[in-house]
Structures are given as C-alpha cells and as structure tokens.
Nucleic acid binder design. Structure first.
Length: 540
RNA sequence: GCCCCUGUAGCUCAGCUGGAUAGAGCAUCGGACUUCUAAUCCGAGGGUCGCAGGUUCGAAUCCUGUCGGGGGUGCCA
C-alpha cells in the first residue's frame, strides 16, 4: 500500500458519491487537516455543495458518508460540516512496512502522467566565478529537478552557456589587457570591462603556462571549467551545457525569424525588426528582434533557443529559472512561445535576488567591478549543507537578505543540523539495538505497529507515511521549500518522541516496533535531505 | 506612468489554488542528562497577518483602493 493510492481512493470515492447523490461532476479536494484530531484526510466539499444543492452543509456531509466507505479507511466522521477520514490501522501498518521493505516503491509517487521536463537554471555568464546569487539558483534548480524526478517525470537539467556576445568581448579585452600589463606593456581595461582581481590571476596563469591556445579561448575554458567545478562541489549537476555560440551558427535563428514573419507577428520600424508582443499580452510592449545594425537581439536568440527545446528536443514542459532583472524578458518570451504555438509549455520562474548584508549595510554586488561573494567562498565559509538548506528554506519569490557574518556565526544553529542530528541519532540507536541482537532490517515482517499507541508514536507514524504527498505537492506548486519545512517539523516530532520514550527497552516486541518507526523516520529524512542535495551523516 | 515580486512574533521566514484555536527556527526567561547521541527535550512570554473597504457560511489567503520595500519597462544580455 502507498499513501498516494489511499489518497486517490478517497478522492475517487468522494467524486462518485457526489455524482450519485447530486449528479455533479465535481472534483472535490481531499486535504490533510492541520490538527490530527480531525483524522488523516478531510474534505470541505459539503460547504461547497451547499449552495448548489440547496441544503445545509451538515446534512450533505451526512448523506455522503451514509454509504459503503472506501476500503482504506476505518471511519468517516462528520464534524461541523467537514468530513474527516481516518486510515485503517491495517493500511497504516502496511504503508510503513512497505516503506521499510521496499524503499524504491515507497519513493514512487504514481504521477498520473510522466512528462519530459527540462529545468534550466544558473546559466550565468562565463565571465567570472559564480556568485552567491547563482548559488541560490543552483540550490533551488537542482532540488526542483530532484523533486520532479521523484514525482515520476523524466528530467533534464541544462545550463545555457552564453559563450558569445558583448560580455564575452569585454572579458576578452579585459583579459588581454591584463596579459599586456603583466608583460609590461601599456594597456587599459575597457570602461565596462572586468576589473576583478581574478582576471589578473588568470592572466598570470596564462602567461606562466606558456600555452599557444588563444587567450579568448583559454579564458572561456578556464572560467567555464571552474564554474563547473564549483557547481559540482555544490552538488549541482547539469546534464547539458548548451553553447549559445554553436546555436547561433545552426541556422535555427534564421528559421525562427522567418516563421515569426510568416505568422504576421513582426514588423519593421526605425530600420529594426520588431516582434508584436502586445498582440499576445496587452501588458507588454513590442520589442526588437533584429537591431537596426542587423545584429540579432538577445530576445530573438532566446526565442529560438526556447523554441528549440520544444521543437527539436521534444520537452513537454520547460522550467527556466531567471533572476529578477528578467521580469520583462519573461513576459516577452512567454508571449513569443504563445505565438509559436507552445502556450503553457514554458514556465519562467523568477528567483528573487540575494542581498548581501555586512553589518547593517547592503553590499552592492557587481561582477564587473569585481565585488562579489563567490560560491566557493560561501561553500568554504558556511558549508554546502548549511548553504543549501538556507537557500531552500524559503519560497523563491521571497527576497533574501544574506548576512554573511551571521551565516558564519550561526552556522551551528542552522536548522539543517537539527534535521541531520535526528538522522544521526536514529542511526546510533539502530546500531545500539543491533549490538543487542535486534536488527530491524531482518525483522520487518515481525513488527507489530499496532503496539504503537503513545501519542508521540502515532504522530510520527502519520507524518512519516504522508511525506510522499509533500513531495508530490512540491512538484505541483514548484515549491522546493516545502521539503525543508517538513523536515524541521518532522525532526522535532522525533526528538520529542525520543526523549519521552525508551526505544530499546525490556519489552522486545515494543522495542522492535519503536525501532521500526525510527528506521522509517531515518529513511524519510534521508530521502528528504537527498532531494535537497544535503548529506545525511550517520554520526555527528 | 505602467507591469511583476514583497509586507505575518524582537529577528529570519512558513502558512496564500479561501476552511476548523495564526506556525517554525533564532533570540529572551525558567526547568530536564546514573540509562539508546543534551547538536536534544519541556514550559513561559511575544501578533489589530502594513492600512482601509469589498466578496463569502468562513479571509493572513480572493477583489478594489492605499502606503512602504525590491525589480522591470521600445534596439544591454
């Protein structure tokens, strides 16, 4: 048995009842009540039907319940118009036993329809080390990809490599100027160029290596490979590194502009070619596809790039995570996808910025001026686990003030350690029991979950079996933050249980039950942290 | 001007596709280690959910207005 199946069973039963009784084809919501006294699942459908069927909520609820109930529940109570369902003990036991004996099945979310999904994120310019903003994007993007994969989708992660264009030219010029300076020649860094120290270091390294690789190629490779390293260190892996330079030479952009023209969505003005975006979204203005000097605008390249994702590579759904300076771009890109017939396939997620706070002042970060806090510094200062948890434990729309001093000082009170500690504690208990000859993995079928009658045990079991619903919900609302928040609350339940009840005690059967619950909690925490790209040490 | 995000406990934030008494972490105060990890637990204090209207059986959640913070806004990427 599996919680998702149980949930579906209740939903379907409810739909059928409503159809039978009132001939309505509604899809009622089956929710989890906050307060456990109201059972495992609840529905407010009686309130919603009250007007339609002209009856009091209470009598509707009673009518619905007055029939054979779904098999997975032991009862349905009507309280104040709500219908509350409680899972039967057999079902609860079977779900938790299944978790222990068949973890792979446990982690399947039985998604109705598996989709081919791409998540694009970070995609920082290869002009310097990745900064803390990219770190947030990396944490959120990689976790979203993990969650979607858990939900049963086929997920590809992608980094768009902006390996051409103005920024790259500026980088080349800055780099070559530094090389010249080191060699003792007169050279100035362009006004808008990259003044950071790292360019100087790279220049020295370039000269020292005595390589014959052209500077522009060398610096791009250098920076890209360092970015890759930083990302891997931050447990963020990209399946595809997509080169903009190659894409520009592929002929796809020419064909997209032709298609947009033949669709009648473009026009000429001031010697430039414009896209009539306002036809698709009245809130936005038209924008330039081909500049008056004949160059392709960034907007055009990105349209072609996104069209390529759907048309050449067949993704059903693409999530692109961008920074807040791309609001305008989001609307334009979505409008253009609409024009090309890919409506609703592209979802641009705007991840809010990270403000660096030092003391009481905001530090303006600028890569060109060389003032940045890099991802590597972040990793060294606060660690991957703490940094990832910090970024993940908030919605992506939330602005984030990152106080580096505070993060350093308080890294030991980061909730991530609280969660990891619960896991380590359980591993320790399991080991202790094993030394006493009680190995829970070998006795899964002997566990008597009905012996768990203490409130702390019951809460823990209920929360454990519902984690897949949290993951599924996170995949639907694209809310990675749901996982950390669940884990904090969940760990609290365990710590509470642990201090009140002895796990390994005199009574062997009870000990086995409590070991079973503990092992299930440890597995669940491991799954949750794994989704977040956070480690689960066995000792702390 | 217009568009997007945001405003919830002293601080950092959950809760927002409307639901049952507004939550967590940190900070503050008071308790708990002879026994499986005290990186823990228990208790206390702390809120007109920015403000004002509206819709609803029901609003932190939806709508309108308003104030504050951040971002975007016709040839940067």
């Amino acid at each position: 048995m599996n919680i998702i199946l149980a949930h579906n069973e209740i939903s379907n039963w409810l739909s059928n009842r409503i159809l039978q009784l009132y001939g309505l084809d509604d899809e009622p919501e089956v929710l989890e009540p906050e307060n456990p006294q109201f059972g495992d699942f609840t529905t407010n459908v009686a309130f919603q039907l009250a007007k339609k069927v002209r009856k009091a909520p209470l009598s509707i609820a009673e009518e619905i319940v007055n029939s054979d109930l779904p098999e997975c529940i032991k009862g349905a109570d009507v309280t104040a118009g709500y219908i509350n369902f409680s899972l039967s003990n057999d079902v609860i036991s079977s779900i938790i036993r299944n978790l222990l004996s068949n973890p792979d099945d446990w982690r399947k979310l039985h998604t109705e329809k598996a989709k081919k999904i791409q998540v694009e994120f970070v995609s920082a310019n290869p002009t310097g080390p990745l900064n803390i903003v990219s770190a947030r994007a990396a944490a959120v993007g990689s976790t979203m990809a993990n969650i979607l994969e858990s939900a049963g989708h086929n997920v590809t992660t992608e980094f768009l490599l902006n390996d051409t264009g103005n920024q790259i030219h500026l980088l080349d010029n800055s780099f070559e100027a530094r090389i010249a300076q080191i060699k003792g020649n007169e050279a100035t860094i362009p006004e808008n160029g990259y003044h950071g120290e790292y360019i100087k270091d790279y220049a020295a390294e370039y000269i020292e290596s005595g390589t014959h690789v052209k500077p522009e190629k060398w610096i791009l490779n250098k920076i890209t490979s360092e970015q890759k390293q930083s990302l891997e260190k931050f447990r963020t892996h990209f399946d595809v590194w997509f080169s903009e330079k190659k894409f520009r030479r592929s002929g796809k952009i020419e064909s997209i502009i032709q298609r947009l023209e033949s669709l009648g969505t473009t026009y000429e003005r001031d010697k430039a070619t414009w896209f009539a975006a306002s036809k698709f979204n009245s809130n936005i203005k038209d924008f330039v596809l081909i500049k008056s000097d004949g160059e392709w605008a960034y907007g055009l390249v990105d349209i072609a790039y996104h069209a390529n994702k759907f048309e050449e590579r067949g993704f059903d759904k693409v999530y692109t995570i961008l920074g807040p300076d791309h609001y305008g771009h989001r609307d334009r890109l979505e409008a253009s996808m609409k024009a090309l017939g890919h409506e609703d396939k592209l979802k641009i997620l705007i991840l809010q910025q990270v403000n660096i706070i030092e003391g009481s002042e905001k530090v303006k970060m600028s890569k060109r001026a060389g003032k940045i806090i890099t991802m590597d510094e972040l990793i060294d200062d606060v660690g991957v686990d703490a940094a990832r948890f910090f970024f993940l434990a908030r919605r992506m729309e939330a602005h984030l003030d990152f106080d580096l001093n505070l993060a350093r000082d308080t890294s030991d009170v980061n909730p991530v350690y609280y969660v990891q500690y619960a896991h380590a504690r359980i591993r320790s208990i399991l080991k202790f029991a094993e030394n006493k000859g009680l190995k829970v993995e070998e006795k899964i079928n002997d566990i008597k979950f009905e012996l768990a009658i203490e409130p702390e045990e019951i809460l823990l079991i209920r929360k454990t079996i519902k984690f897949p619903l949290v993951v599924r919900n996170a995949s639907i609302i694209l809310g990675a933050h749901l996982i950390p928040f669940f884990l904090i609350e969940y760990s609290k339940l365990f710590h509470n249980f642990y201090t009140k009840h002895r796990v390994v005690g005199e009574n062997r059967e009870l000990s086995l039950t409590r070991l079973g619950i503990s092992a299930a909690v440890a597995d669940t925490i491991r799954w949750g942290l794994c989704l977040c790209g956070i480690s689960t040490p066995n000792q702390m």
